[in-house]
């Protein structure tokens, strides 16, 4: 469980850390704690898995990977676990989830595939299909990004 103090720290950390010589000291002053205590609390939040990662987030779109496709796969339920793990192993795959099927929607594994071009995405998906033996799939390329933002928690 999170303490009120830890929620305050999380709230503050989603504003980003300042680009100054002693950034944690500045944040600690705002949070009425010490630099050392704040650093230890952040490490503890990382160890306990509340913070998945501490560092920079990049815009991959601006890093030369403008193409992304959500690839949806129809995988027999009893193979979903095994195939999901194989798909997750591909470096072109950033996300891999199992989700429920819906009427008219037979797909249960979802991967997001990134590439420098559409063709590169298509090639990666063919590799994945070959490696998993799953031939029922669809690529849903994204054509417009309407929103991309970081969630703000406890606000």
């Amino acid at each position: 469980m999170l303490t009120e103090k830890e929620k305050q720290i999380i709230r503050e950390l989603q504003n980003g850390i300042p680009l100054v010589h002693r950034p944690f000291k500045i944040l600690a002053q705002k949070l009425r704690t010490t630099e050392e205590e704040l650093i230890n609390k952040i490490k503890s939040l990382l160890d306990r898995g509340y913070i998945r990662r501490f560092g920079a987030t990049v815009r991959h779109h601006d890093l030369g990977y403008p193409a992304n496709a959500m690839v949806v796969w129809n995988v027999p339920d009893e193979l979903a676990e095994e195939k999901g793990r194989i798909m997750a192993g591909f470096k072109e795959v950033s996300h891999c989830y199992q989700r429920p099927r819906r009427p008219g929607w037979p797909y249960n594994l979802f991967t997001v595939v990134h590439g420098r071009s559409r063709e590169e995405c298509v090639r990666a998906v063919k590799k994945i299909s070959l490696a998993t033996g799953i031939k029922k799939y669809r690529l849903l390329f994204s054509t417009i990004e309407l929103k991309k933002s970081s969630m703000r928690y406890f606000e």
Partner: peptide, 16 residues
């Protein structure tokens, strides 16, 4: 220049 989005914590929403 928009290459970096943010510097800070990336949280596990389920865990939170």
């Amino acid at each position: 220049n928009g290459v970096l989005r943010r510097l800070g914590g990336i949280f596990d929403s389920r865990k939170l």
